[in-house]
Amino acid sequence: MSAPSSPVPAPLGSRVPLAGLAVALGALAFAVLPLLVPTYQVSILTEILIFAVLAMAVDVLAGFTGRTPLCHGAIFGVATYVVVYWSQQGGAPVTGVLLAVAAATLVAAIFGLLAIRTSGVYFLLLTLALGMIVWGVCLRWTSVTGGENGLRGTVRPELLAGHLPFYYAVFAVVGIITCVMWRFVRSPFGLTLRGIRDSESRMRALGYNVSLHLFLAFTISGFFAGLAGALYAMFNDFVSPSTVALSQSVEGLLMAITGGIGTLFGAFIGAAAIIGLENFVSQYTERWQSVLGLMFILIMIFAPQGVIGRVRDLLTRRR
């Protein structure tokens, strides 16, 4: 599944006020909502923000670079493991987070070196295999990772122990990350990535070092996935192989696709839709996974470009 290559939605341009308004409204909703709902929903909102970062990281590659990765759950989980392991060893949370993000970035760099040689379905399969290696290591290296049982720690600093303080800390961090990522995809570097997505050979002919760009994009995307993973460690105080499993990578990708691939902000809509539905539907039926599956099929049929993509299309058509 490659990114929508044809008519690239003109970079905002005429729609700036409208798009800006939507983003502001979204940010406002995330800022105010936690004050109105009970604590359990606050924890769901926290999770949505964290996973939106993972989905944005996936989107950088899948949407802006035209390479769909299936290993970002694993990169995300590496950071989670490092944070929890570090706290279990009695280390300070801040150092743990720094180490975790460094570890995730390193893993992403190594994966990047191997994966950028391929594209299309081969890229998909190679990243899938790389992700599975991480999962296998986490499952078998029992003395460090706790194997199947995983690791437990008390990661969250005392100051952020409550639901609301932690939520707003995450909100602030995610806000900064989002701004940085938005700048990143709109920078000349990001535009080059889009160029590579649309025509690799042309970019090469223009004199761009395509491999280097791909490598950097992969590593940077891994860096953001690592940040999300570190936040997730603080959220859960727990990590097990299911955090680095394939399903995690797939979930990140599905969120990006649901929201709209190549839209960045779609990640928030995708994360909210999937995590929200998971929690909402499972209250009523144990077949909630079927409901989710059905929803994905419907999205693929009626809005293959994702929620934001669909809205954009409708707005364009109206003009």
């Binding site: 604590t39 359990y40 924890s43 995983g150 929690n279 499972s282 209250q283 909630w288």
Partner: peptide, 20 residues
């Protein structure tokens, strides 16, 4: 609640049961 044999899901469901 269904924990789906997955620790992350179990944790989420435990939170829901306790907090909601």
């Amino acid at each position: 609640e269904d924990d789906a044999a997955n620790p992350d899901t179990a944790l989420q469901k435990a939170r829901r049961l306790v907090e909601q």
